[in-house]
Simulated assay, not measured.
Amino acid sequence: MRLSPRTLDKLTGVITGDGGPYPYRGGPKIIAFFNALGWDDSYGAGFGSRNPHTREKLDALNGTSRMRDAVLAAFDIWGEPDLDPEAAAADFNKLLTRDGYRLAKVIGPGWIDNGHEVEGVPRFKLVALSAGTVDPVALAAVSHATLGEYIEKCRAKIASGDSAGAITNAYTLIEAVLKDLLRQAGVAFKADEGDIRALYTALKAPLHLDPKDESLEVHLKTVLDGFQKLVSGLYATANKASDRHDRRYHPAPHHAKLVVNAAFALGDFLYDTHEYQRARRAAEAA
């Protein structure tokens, strides 16, 4: 997720509490805020001023998946005294929508208390205004900063109309996913291998993705055969319509969305499969 300098200025004030009706955060709380996002800093000598420190951290997050976490953490302000979270979000959305996102209120699941229905707890979620891509839950949850950056680049290029660039990033995302899973599976491969067909073939055995596996149900074989063809399709499309090579045609926006969504779905499936196989082996060894 990448924000404009003006939006980053506004978010800096939201986090410090100096930019309007937001909770005030002193130095120790600002350190704690960013430590929750991956840093391991201590408050003390060298901290400097609150606003420059906050903006420096946001600049480091900008363009990564953790920027989304920073925005949501900044607006986790339900229950603050004398503060209207929805009004605060509406004010921030005036800038955020220019970057292709908005904060939207959602209500968590409710419950029954003594026979009465209790409404769930409210929170904010970030909605991409382009509404052009699926949400790769398993893929986005992977602790691999590069993957998060590729996801955000795909979304940003779809939103900006850079169809060829979106296809390039989708291909690179799948290449990175396959290499990461091969490393975790202990399968040797060429570090400079750029053919996702070869990488996927190497991953089929450890993740049990071979549609010819006789132990699989027929319907699963059909799905796995489809994923194998999907990988070949992504390879061919990237060669002809991305900016990786001298492309033969300019892809239409809906073709780019199809490729990006297919890459997201494939990446989600592969990480879910990896986790399933890992848990299964652990259970068998117990």
Rank of each mutant, 00 (worst) to 15 (best):
A138W: 09
L139A: 12
L139E: 12
L139G: 08
A141C: 08
V142C: 05
V142H: 02
S143C: 05
H144T: 06
H144F: 06
H144I: 05
A145T: 08
T146S: 11
L147C: 01
L147F: 04
L147N: 02
E149T: 13
E149D: 04
Y150G: 00
I151W: 01
I151M: 08
K153D: 11
K153C: 01
A159N: 13
D162P: 03
A164F: 05
A166H: 03
A166G: 04
I167F: 01
A170H: 00
A170W: 02
Y171Q: 12
Y171K: 03
L173T: 08
I174V: 14
L178V: 09
L182C: 09
R183G: 00
A185W: 00
G186A: 05
A188D: 11
F189P: 06
D192G: 02
G194C: 11
G194R: 09
G194L: 13
I196V: 15
I196G: 09
R197C: 08
R197F: 01
R197G: 14
R197W: 02
L199F: 03
L199R: 04
Y200V: 10
T201W: 01
T201K: 14
T201R: 09
A202Q: 10
A202K: 13
A202T: 01
L203D: 08
L203S: 05
K204V: 04
A205K: 08
A205S: 07
A205N: 05
H208V: 08
L209S: 06
L209H: 06
L209K: 06
D210T: 07
D210E: 11
D210G: 10
K212N: 15
D213S: 12
S215H: 10
S215P: 00
S215I: 04
E217N: 12
E217H: 09
H219V: 11
K221A: 14
K221Q: 15
K221W: 13
T222M: 14
T222L: 15
D225L: 13
